[in-house]
Design a protein around this nucleic acid. Structure first.
Length: 417
DNA sequence: TAGCCACTAAACAGTC
DNA sequence: AGACTGTTTAGTGGCT
């Protein structure tokens, strides 16, 4: 019962972001979501499906529009799902890193829905007031208290990279101008609305430095709008998704013990530990949620028409347009585990300016690495196994014993460098 | 303690 | 001219 409620809630939440994961599955099985706490690193890259794979990138659409509908639903359906969690007495640090924060802050932030929430319309309050006290109650608290107690006023436990990733991934076109990224962050993380403007600098800094993000020139000839669109490098998309997953693992594992035997209806699974701690989520929820993300990432790679191309990235414009994509392999500011040459920060990047690549229509220009692709597929197989195990776990079926635990370290090590 | 990483601040150049 | 965007460098603090 409980599991279904939240599973559905989270699947509804993530469906715009990871539609393949949540589209047709029974809510009880496909639910959950994602907690993330700051993990700095990520695992292996290697997606072929990707944000930029759509080719010609349209003008950025509102980052929040697609989410709004489902989240509005979410806000209504999930109202009151976790009352009192915000008042659980957790310290700020805990809130920033544990699952409660995610539940209260991210999810309910997401549930704010539409773009109008940027301005803090009454709808925001309505949505929140029925489901949680976090935002509303914060306004009734004194400033310092609110900042301490209200996760909405706390700094999000995500790195800027992940924030940007989420923003871009959520956009319909999988690409956003900086300004839209700002807006998305502001919308979903009100902390930044009151934060000094330096965070915007950090966002730009991240976009520039982080190889996970790629600059896409707006349609040639179009002069409206400043700057470029930014998208997630498809190659690093799974990496970032994995980074999101990894964020919560250390915390969850701190209190999670896999059930010794398959759970039964009469005996609640032992891993429903968070319930006792005032959290609305269980580890299995998160595990499965991140599995969803993995599945999504992976499924894109396997389900999207790859054609004959072997290259990991398809930025081929669909209608013969030319897309400019910034990509400099020498830059090493990323979370990649891919084998970019270890370049120090002071290395060649300083002398080799990052410039956009001109990708002609047709097969991906970055291709020709079938070995690499095979390696990636092996990694993805591995991830899919984990994801499947997570799903089985969520469904009450005990996966192979080693499956759930092994991931963290490995991929963390693979990351950057 | 060293190294890595994320974050922040700042400077600067280019564009609108 | 001013705001915005994008790049780069440098410093700091946390974590392992």
């Amino acid at each position: 019962m409980y599991i279904h409620t939240h599973a559905h809630r989270f699947s509804t939440l993530l469906s715009p972001l990871f539609p393949l994961c949540f589209s047709a599955d029974p809510p009880g099985l496909m639910g959950p979501v994602v907690g993330m706490s700051p993990d700095k690193k990520a695992g292996s890259p290697g997606s072929q499906g990707g944000a930029c794979g759509a080719g010609t990138l349209p003008e950025a659409e509102s980052a929040s529009s697609p989410l709004a509908t489902s989240l509005d639903r979410l806000g209504r359906a999930g109202a009151g799902a976790a009352p009192g969690v915000a008042e659980g007495g957790a310290t700020e640090d805990e809130e920033l890193t544990n699952l409660n924060w995610l539940h209260e802050n991210l999810l309910q932030n997401f549930s704010l829905g539409g773009p109008e929430d940027i301005e803090g319309t009454p709808d925001t309050d309505n949505t929140l007031s029925s489901s949680s006290s976090s935002s509303v109650s914060s306004s009734s608290l004194s400033g310092g208290q609110a900042a301490e107690r209200d996760p909405l006023k706390s700094k999000p436990p995500f790195s800027f990279s992940l924030l940007i990733f989420m923003a871009i991934e959520q956009s319909p076109s999988k690409s956003l101008p900086v300004k839209e990224i700002y807006s998305w962050i502001l919308q979903h993380f009100p902390y930044f609305s009151s934060a000094p403007t330096g965070w915007k600098n950090s966002v730009r800094h991240n976009l520039s430095l982080n190889k996970c993000f790629r600059k896409v020139e707006r349609s040639l000839g179009k002069t409206n709008g400043k700057g470029s669109l930014w998208c997630v490098d498809p190659e690093f998309r799974p990496t970032l998704a994995q980074a999101l997953r990894k964020q919560h693992l250390p915390n969850t594992h701190a209190f999670y013990t896999p059930p010794a035997s398959p759970p039964s209806a009469s005996s609640p699974p032992r891993h429903l530990l968070l319930l006792e701690q005032g959290s609305a989520l269980r580890e299995s929820d998160f595990d499965a949620a991140t599995a969803m993300m993995l599945l999504k990432s992976a499924s894109e790679q396997y389900t999207e028409p790859l054609g004959d191309q072997e290259g990991p990235i398809d930025l081929s414009p669909r209608r013969g347009e030319v897309v400019l994509v910034s990509r400099d392999p020498q830059q090493d500011h990323n979370y990649s585990s891919s084998p970019p040459p270890p370049v120090s920060r002071e290395g060649p990047s300083s002398t080799a300016p990052r410039r956009p690549l001109l990708l002609a229509p047709g097969p991906a220009s970055g291709g020709g690495c079938s070995k690499r692709v095979r390696l990636r597929q092996a990694e993805l197989d591995e991830e899919l196994k984990e994801a499947a195990g997570s799903l089985l776990h969520l469904a009450g079926v005990r996966p192979s014993p080693q499956a759930p635990v092994q991931r963290g370290r490995k991929s963390r090590k693979i990351s950057r460098k």
